[in-house]
Design a protein around this nucleic acid. Structure first.
Lengths: 160, 160
DNA sequence: CAGCACGTTCAATACAGACTGAACGATTTA
DNA sequence: TAAATCGTTCAGTCTGTATTGAACGTGCTG
Protein backbone atom coordinates (compact mmCIF):
# COMPACT_ATOMS: atom_id res chain seq x y z
CA UNK A 1 0.00 0.00 0.00
CA UNK A 2 2.85 2.33 0.90
CA UNK A 3 4.58 1.19 -2.21
CA UNK A 4 1.48 2.00 -4.15
CA UNK A 5 1.26 5.53 -2.75
CA UNK A 6 4.86 6.24 -3.63
CA UNK A 7 4.39 4.73 -7.04
CA UNK A 8 1.38 6.86 -7.74
CA UNK A 9 3.09 10.01 -6.59
CA UNK A 10 6.07 9.29 -8.80
CA UNK A 11 3.89 8.65 -11.80
CA UNK A 12 1.84 11.78 -11.13
CA UNK A 13 4.93 13.93 -10.88
CA UNK A 14 6.15 12.42 -14.12
CA UNK A 15 2.97 13.49 -15.83
CA UNK A 16 3.15 16.98 -14.33
CA UNK A 17 6.65 17.30 -15.66
CA UNK A 18 5.51 16.20 -19.05
CA UNK A 19 2.71 18.75 -19.00
CA UNK A 20 5.27 21.40 -18.26
CA UNK A 21 7.13 20.43 -21.37
CA UNK A 22 9.87 18.53 -19.58
CA UNK A 23 10.87 14.89 -19.80
CA UNK A 24 8.59 12.62 -17.87
CA UNK A 25 11.50 10.89 -16.27
CA UNK A 26 12.74 14.15 -14.78
CA UNK A 27 9.50 14.44 -12.83
CA UNK A 28 9.71 10.84 -11.75
CA UNK A 29 13.20 11.42 -10.45
CA UNK A 30 11.98 14.36 -8.40
CA UNK A 31 9.12 12.28 -7.06
CA UNK A 32 11.36 9.41 -6.12
CA UNK A 33 13.85 11.60 -4.31
CA UNK A 34 11.03 13.43 -2.59
CA UNK A 35 9.60 10.19 -1.26
CA UNK A 36 12.92 8.77 -0.23
CA UNK A 37 14.10 11.95 1.41
CA UNK A 38 17.70 10.83 1.15
CA UNK A 39 20.32 10.92 -1.58
CA UNK A 40 20.10 8.09 -4.08
CA UNK A 41 22.55 6.80 -6.64
CA UNK A 42 22.15 6.47 -10.37
CA UNK A 43 21.81 2.73 -10.02
CA UNK A 44 19.08 3.07 -7.43
CA UNK A 45 17.28 5.53 -9.65
CA UNK A 46 17.43 3.35 -12.72
CA UNK A 47 16.27 0.30 -10.81
CA UNK A 48 13.52 1.99 -8.84
CA UNK A 49 12.10 3.70 -11.89
CA UNK A 50 12.86 0.96 -14.40
CA UNK A 51 14.80 3.26 -16.66
CA UNK A 52 18.18 3.02 -18.29
CA UNK A 53 21.21 4.43 -16.58
CA UNK A 54 21.68 6.71 -19.54
CA UNK A 55 18.30 8.28 -18.90
CA UNK A 56 18.95 8.54 -15.21
CA UNK A 57 22.26 10.26 -15.87
CA UNK A 58 20.84 12.64 -18.45
CA UNK A 59 17.85 13.63 -16.39
CA UNK A 60 19.64 14.07 -13.11
CA UNK A 61 22.07 16.41 -14.81
CA UNK A 62 19.20 18.22 -16.46
CA UNK A 63 17.62 18.77 -13.06
CA UNK A 64 20.98 19.81 -11.69
CA UNK A 65 21.25 22.46 -14.39
CA UNK A 66 17.88 23.76 -13.29
CA UNK A 67 19.10 23.93 -9.74
CA UNK A 68 16.73 21.35 -8.36
CA UNK A 69 19.17 18.54 -7.68
CA UNK A 70 22.66 18.46 -6.30
CA UNK A 71 25.30 15.83 -6.48
CA UNK A 72 26.51 14.58 -3.10
CA UNK A 73 29.61 12.47 -2.79
CA UNK A 74 28.66 9.91 -0.25
CA UNK A 75 31.74 9.08 1.73
CA UNK A 76 32.05 5.32 1.92
CA UNK A 77 31.27 4.95 -1.75
CA UNK A 78 32.72 6.23 -4.94
CA UNK A 79 29.30 6.42 -6.42
CA UNK A 80 27.78 9.82 -6.83
CA UNK A 81 24.44 10.30 -5.19
CA UNK A 82 21.72 12.76 -6.03
CA UNK A 83 19.57 14.73 -3.65
CA UNK A 84 16.94 17.42 -3.81
CA UNK A 85 18.30 20.84 -3.00
CA UNK A 86 16.88 22.61 0.03
CA UNK A 87 14.20 24.48 -1.85
CA UNK A 88 13.48 22.84 -5.16
CA UNK A 89 10.25 24.81 -5.33
CA UNK A 90 12.09 28.12 -5.25
CA UNK A 91 14.31 26.92 -8.04
CA UNK A 92 11.26 26.00 -10.05
CA UNK A 93 10.01 29.56 -9.84
CA UNK A 94 13.45 30.80 -10.66
CA UNK A 95 13.50 28.74 -13.83
CA UNK A 96 10.21 30.17 -14.98
CA UNK A 97 11.38 33.66 -14.14
CA UNK A 98 14.54 33.13 -16.15
CA UNK A 99 12.57 32.01 -19.15
CA UNK A 100 10.31 35.04 -18.87
CA UNK A 101 13.30 37.30 -18.68
CA UNK A 102 14.79 35.70 -21.76
CA UNK A 103 11.53 36.26 -23.58
CA UNK A 104 11.41 39.85 -22.39
CA UNK A 105 14.86 40.61 -23.74
CA UNK A 106 14.13 38.90 -26.99
CA UNK A 107 10.94 40.85 -27.55
CA UNK A 108 12.42 44.16 -26.56
CA UNK A 109 15.20 43.71 -29.05
CA UNK A 110 12.77 42.80 -31.75
CA UNK A 111 10.47 45.69 -30.90
CA UNK A 112 13.33 48.05 -31.57
CA UNK A 113 13.42 46.97 -35.17
CA UNK A 114 9.90 48.10 -35.86
CA UNK A 115 9.48 51.53 -37.41
CA UNK A 116 8.02 54.17 -35.13
CA UNK A 117 4.70 54.70 -36.81
CA UNK A 118 3.33 51.49 -38.13
CA UNK A 119 -0.04 51.04 -36.56
CA UNK A 120 1.49 50.85 -33.11
CA UNK A 121 3.06 47.46 -33.62
CA UNK A 122 6.22 48.57 -31.87
CA UNK A 123 4.25 49.70 -28.84
CA UNK A 124 2.29 46.49 -28.64
CA UNK A 125 5.39 44.37 -28.84
CA UNK A 126 7.06 46.50 -26.21
CA UNK A 127 4.01 46.12 -24.03
CA UNK A 128 4.33 42.38 -24.19
CA UNK A 129 8.02 42.58 -23.47
CA UNK A 130 7.27 44.72 -20.43
CA UNK A 131 4.84 42.13 -19.22
CA UNK A 132 7.46 39.43 -19.40
CA UNK A 133 10.03 41.54 -17.66
CA UNK A 134 7.81 42.76 -14.87
CA UNK A 135 6.49 39.27 -14.29
CA UNK A 136 10.02 37.94 -14.14
CA UNK A 137 10.87 40.51 -11.49
CA UNK A 138 7.75 39.64 -9.62
CA UNK A 139 8.54 35.94 -9.60
CA UNK A 140 12.07 36.56 -8.47
CA UNK A 141 10.75 38.47 -5.49
CA UNK A 142 8.39 35.65 -4.76
CA UNK A 143 11.25 33.22 -5.03
CA UNK A 144 13.31 35.26 -2.59
CA UNK A 145 10.47 35.15 -0.15
CA UNK A 146 10.18 31.39 -0.51
CA UNK A 147 13.88 30.86 -0.01
CA UNK A 148 13.91 33.20 2.92
CA UNK A 149 11.43 31.24 4.92
CA UNK A 150 13.77 28.78 6.53
CA UNK A 151 10.97 26.78 7.98
CA UNK A 152 11.91 23.45 9.52
CA UNK A 153 9.72 21.70 7.00
CA UNK A 154 12.40 19.96 4.99
CA UNK A 155 14.83 19.68 7.87
CA UNK A 156 15.14 17.19 10.75
CA UNK A 157 17.00 14.37 9.05
CA UNK A 158 16.16 11.90 11.80
CA UNK A 159 14.46 9.57 9.38
CA UNK A 160 15.93 6.58 7.55
CA UNK B 1 12.67 45.76 -43.55
CA UNK B 2 9.39 46.15 -41.73
CA UNK B 3 8.39 42.83 -43.13
CA UNK B 4 11.57 41.40 -41.80
CA UNK B 5 11.00 42.73 -38.31
CA UNK B 6 7.51 41.30 -38.18
CA UNK B 7 8.74 38.03 -39.57
CA UNK B 8 11.44 37.77 -36.98
CA UNK B 9 9.06 38.56 -34.16
CA UNK B 10 6.63 35.93 -35.35
CA UNK B 11 9.32 33.32 -35.61
CA UNK B 12 10.70 34.21 -32.20
CA UNK B 13 7.30 33.94 -30.58
CA UNK B 14 6.84 30.59 -32.25
CA UNK B 15 10.03 29.36 -30.67
CA UNK B 16 9.06 30.74 -27.27
CA UNK B 17 5.81 28.90 -27.52
CA UNK B 18 7.60 25.74 -28.40
CA UNK B 19 9.91 26.15 -25.43
CA UNK B 20 6.86 26.44 -23.24
CA UNK B 21 5.67 23.10 -24.51
CA UNK B 22 3.05 24.50 -26.84
CA UNK B 23 2.70 24.24 -30.60
CA UNK B 24 5.01 26.53 -32.46
CA UNK B 25 2.21 27.70 -34.66
CA UNK B 26 0.25 28.91 -31.65
CA UNK B 27 3.04 31.31 -30.82
CA UNK B 28 3.27 32.43 -34.41
CA UNK B 29 -0.43 33.20 -34.44
CA UNK B 30 -0.02 35.32 -31.33
CA UNK B 31 2.89 37.13 -32.90
CA UNK B 32 1.05 37.80 -36.11
CA UNK B 33 -2.03 39.15 -34.37
CA UNK B 34 0.14 41.23 -32.09
CA UNK B 35 1.88 42.83 -35.04
CA UNK B 36 -1.28 43.40 -37.00
CA UNK B 37 -3.21 44.73 -34.06
CA UNK B 38 -6.49 43.98 -35.73
CA UNK B 39 -8.66 40.88 -36.08
CA UNK B 40 -7.57 38.53 -38.85
CA UNK B 41 -9.37 35.66 -40.52
CA UNK B 42 -8.36 32.04 -40.79
CA UNK B 43 -7.48 32.54 -44.42
CA UNK B 44 -5.28 35.51 -43.63
CA UNK B 45 -3.57 33.51 -40.92
CA UNK B 46 -2.90 30.52 -43.09
CA UNK B 47 -1.56 32.66 -45.91
CA UNK B 48 0.54 34.98 -43.78
CA UNK B 49 2.12 32.13 -41.85
CA UNK B 50 2.22 29.63 -44.69
CA UNK B 51 0.30 27.03 -42.75
CA UNK B 52 -2.70 24.91 -43.57
CA UNK B 53 -6.15 26.10 -42.67
CA UNK B 54 -6.53 23.05 -40.51
CA UNK B 55 -3.57 24.13 -38.41
CA UNK B 56 -4.84 27.67 -38.22
CA UNK B 57 -8.22 26.46 -37.08
CA UNK B 58 -6.84 24.06 -34.51
CA UNK B 59 -4.40 26.53 -33.04
CA UNK B 60 -6.74 29.49 -32.88
CA UNK B 61 -9.22 27.37 -30.99
CA UNK B 62 -6.47 26.14 -28.73
CA UNK B 63 -5.54 29.71 -27.90
CA UNK B 64 -9.19 30.55 -27.43
CA UNK B 65 -9.48 27.76 -24.87
CA UNK B 66 -6.57 29.33 -23.03
CA UNK B 67 -8.35 32.66 -23.05
CA UNK B 68 -5.81 34.45 -25.21
CA UNK B 69 -7.84 34.83 -28.39
CA UNK B 70 -11.43 35.68 -29.03
CA UNK B 71 -13.54 35.18 -32.06
CA UNK B 72 -15.03 38.37 -33.46
CA UNK B 73 -17.78 38.36 -36.03
CA UNK B 74 -16.79 41.11 -38.36
CA UNK B 75 -19.98 42.65 -39.69
CA UNK B 76 -19.62 42.96 -43.44
CA UNK B 77 -18.21 39.46 -43.71
CA UNK B 78 -19.43 36.06 -42.77
CA UNK B 79 -15.92 35.00 -41.99
CA UNK B 80 -14.93 34.64 -38.40
CA UNK B 81 -12.00 36.73 -37.36
CA UNK B 82 -9.62 36.23 -34.49
CA UNK B 83 -8.21 38.86 -32.20
CA UNK B 84 -6.05 39.01 -29.11
CA UNK B 85 -8.07 39.52 -25.96
CA UNK B 86 -7.47 42.70 -24.00
CA UNK B 87 -4.88 41.22 -21.70
CA UNK B 88 -3.38 38.09 -23.17
CA UNK B 89 -0.56 38.40 -20.68
CA UNK B 90 -2.91 38.12 -17.74
CA UNK B 91 -4.43 35.04 -19.27
CA UNK B 92 -1.00 33.55 -19.62
CA UNK B 93 -0.39 33.93 -15.92
CA UNK B 94 -3.82 32.56 -15.23
CA UNK B 95 -3.03 29.44 -17.21
CA UNK B 96 0.12 28.82 -15.25
CA UNK B 97 -1.71 29.44 -11.99
CA UNK B 98 -4.38 26.95 -12.98
CA UNK B 99 -1.81 24.32 -13.72
CA UNK B 100 -0.10 24.93 -10.39
CA UNK B 101 -3.40 24.62 -8.61
CA UNK B 102 -4.10 21.35 -10.37
CA UNK B 103 -0.71 20.07 -9.30
CA UNK B 104 -1.34 21.21 -5.74
CA UNK B 105 -4.60 19.30 -5.51
CA UNK B 106 -3.10 16.25 -7.08
CA UNK B 107 -0.19 16.18 -4.65
CA UNK B 108 -2.28 16.87 -1.61
CA UNK B 109 -4.53 13.95 -2.45
CA UNK B 110 -1.56 11.69 -2.96
CA UNK B 111 0.11 12.87 0.23
CA UNK B 112 -2.94 11.69 2.12
CA UNK B 113 -2.27 8.15 1.06
CA UNK B 114 1.10 8.00 2.72
CA UNK B 115 1.24 6.48 6.18
CA UNK B 116 1.87 8.91 9.01
CA UNK B 117 5.29 7.79 10.04
CA UNK B 118 7.33 6.76 7.07
CA UNK B 119 10.42 8.86 7.16
CA UNK B 120 8.43 12.03 6.72
CA UNK B 121 7.49 11.36 3.13
CA UNK B 122 3.96 12.54 3.72
CA UNK B 123 5.20 15.82 5.12
CA UNK B 124 7.56 16.41 2.26
CA UNK B 125 4.91 15.75 -0.31
CA UNK B 126 2.52 18.04 1.50
CA UNK B 127 5.18 20.69 1.58
CA UNK B 128 5.47 20.54 -2.15
CA UNK B 129 1.72 20.64 -2.52
CA UNK B 130 1.63 23.73 -0.33
CA UNK B 131 4.19 25.37 -2.52
CA UNK B 132 2.09 24.79 -5.58
CA UNK B 133 -1.03 26.08 -3.94
CA UNK B 134 0.50 29.18 -2.42
CA UNK B 135 2.23 30.00 -5.68
CA UNK B 136 -1.02 29.60 -7.55
CA UNK B 137 -2.69 32.05 -5.17
CA UNK B 138 0.20 34.40 -5.60
CA UNK B 139 0.01 34.33 -9.36
CA UNK B 140 -3.71 34.88 -9.32
CA UNK B 141 -3.19 38.02 -7.28
CA UNK B 142 -0.57 39.14 -9.73
CA UNK B 143 -2.94 38.44 -12.55
CA UNK B 144 -5.64 40.50 -10.91
CA UNK B 145 -3.24 43.37 -10.62
CA UNK B 146 -2.32 43.10 -14.28
CA UNK B 147 -5.91 43.01 -15.39
CA UNK B 148 -6.77 45.89 -13.11
CA UNK B 149 -4.36 48.26 -14.78
CA UNK B 150 -6.56 49.48 -17.60
CA UNK B 151 -3.80 51.36 -19.27
CA UNK B 152 -4.52 52.71 -22.75
CA UNK B 153 -1.72 50.60 -24.14
CA UNK B 154 -3.75 48.27 -26.29
CA UNK B 155 -6.51 50.74 -27.03
CA UNK B 156 -6.80 53.51 -29.61
CA UNK B 157 -7.89 51.56 -32.67
CA UNK B 158 -7.10 54.42 -35.00
CA UNK B 159 -4.85 52.31 -37.14
CA UNK B 160 -5.85 50.29 -40.18
C1' DC C 1 -31.18 24.09 -57.49
C1' DA C 2 -26.02 24.15 -58.47
C1' DG C 3 -21.92 26.24 -57.22
C1' DC C 4 -19.02 28.39 -53.55
C1' DA C 5 -16.82 29.81 -49.47
C1' DC C 6 -16.12 28.81 -44.86
C1' DG C 7 -14.74 26.17 -40.67
C1' DT C 8 -14.14 21.76 -38.67
C1' DT C 9 -12.91 16.91 -38.44
C1' DC C 10 -10.27 12.94 -39.52
C1' DA C 11 -6.75 9.76 -41.18
C1' DA C 12 -2.13 9.89 -42.55
C1' DT C 13 2.41 11.87 -42.39
C1' DA C 14 6.34 14.31 -40.62
C1' DC C 15 9.02 15.52 -37.11
C1' DA C 16 11.06 16.50 -32.51
C1' DG C 17 12.94 14.75 -28.85
C1' DA C 18 12.69 11.23 -25.05
C1' DC C 19 14.73 7.01 -24.21
C1' DT C 20 17.73 3.02 -24.89
C1' DG C 21 21.79 -0.09 -25.62
C1' DA C 22 26.34 -0.27 -26.52
C1' DA C 23 30.78 1.69 -26.47
C1' DC C 24 34.13 4.49 -24.11
C1' DG C 25 37.30 6.62 -20.61
C1' DA C 26 38.37 6.84 -15.99
C1' DT C 27 38.98 4.88 -11.59
C1' DT C 28 39.15 1.11 -8.38
C1' DT C 29 40.05 -3.47 -6.79
C1' DA C 30 42.47 -7.76 -6.85
C1' DT D 1 47.98 -6.05 -15.36
C1' DA D 2 43.28 -7.77 -15.64
C1' DA D 3 38.64 -7.43 -14.23
C1' DA D 4 35.05 -4.77 -12.41
C1' DT D 5 32.36 -0.59 -11.51
C1' DC D 6 30.95 3.90 -12.46
C1' DG D 7 29.26 7.91 -15.24
C1' DT D 8 28.92 9.87 -19.69
C1' DT D 9 28.41 10.06 -24.64
C1' DC D 10 26.55 8.79 -28.96
C1' DA D 11 23.93 6.69 -32.72
C1' DG D 12 19.70 4.68 -33.37
C1' DT D 13 14.93 3.63 -32.21
C1' DC D 14 10.61 4.66 -30.65
C1' DT D 15 6.66 7.43 -29.19
C1' DG D 16 3.86 11.38 -28.91
C1' DT D 17 2.07 14.96 -31.21
C1' DA D 18 2.18 18.87 -34.48
C1' DT D 19 0.90 19.51 -39.06
C1' DT D 20 -1.19 18.53 -43.39
C1' DG D 21 -4.50 17.27 -47.29
C1' DA D 22 -8.76 15.71 -48.20
C1' DA D 23 -13.43 14.98 -47.05
C1' DC D 24 -17.47 16.68 -44.79
C1' DG D 25 -21.36 19.72 -43.17
C1' DT D 26 -23.30 24.12 -43.30
C1' DG D 27 -24.92 28.11 -44.93
C1' DC D 28 -24.55 31.58 -48.42
C1' DT D 29 -25.02 33.24 -53.40
C1' DG D 30 -26.46 33.18 -57.95
Amino acid sequence: MTDSAAQRLIEAMGLMSQEDGHPRIAGQVLGYLLVEGEPRTLTQLSEALSISKASASTNTRLLESKGMLRRVSHVGSRQDAWALVDHPDGQMIGTIAARFRRNADMMRDLAGEFPDRQGGARERVNGFADFYRVSADFMDEWRERLLGETRAKQASPEDR
